[in-house]
């Protein structure tokens, strides 16, 4: 499920929005057990059946582990749209 940490570090240096979106989509598919999803900045839990409060936490923790970052409770609560997650990862991991 998680690529090696070494690979991650290398990847982090060349982070841009497109690549983060790509990675997050893969994590999302993995956590939600979905095959092909198209996630846009405006996508919310209302649009995807599997995205509920339980899987949301799993998603966030998977993202934390992938990038080696940590979100606060307030941040987790405030992440409603996929675009919010992308943006927060970009600031946190930069």
């Amino acid at each position: 499920m998680c690529p090696s940490p070494l690979f991650l570090r290398a990847n982090l240096r060349t982070m841009d929005k497109a690549s983060v979106t790509q990675e997050l989509t893969e994590i999302f598919e993995d956590v939600m057990d979905l095959d092909e999803v198209t996630l846009e900045d405006g996508t919310t839990a209302n649009d995807i059946e599997e995205w509920d409060s339980l899987s949301h936490v799993r998603l966030i923790i998977a993202i934390e582990r992938h990038y080696g970052i940590k979100f606060s409770n307030a941040e987790i609560e405030s992440l409603k749209q996929f675009g919010d997650i992308v943006a927060l990862v970009l600031t946190k991991a930069a």
Binding site: S53, L54, V57, R58, I60, I61, A62, E64, R65, N73, I76, E77
Partner: peptide, 14 residues
Amino acid sequence: MHQPLVVPLTRFGA
């Protein structure tokens, strides 16, 4: 209630 409880548990399990 749920989120503050489950986030640390999920981190722990992961």
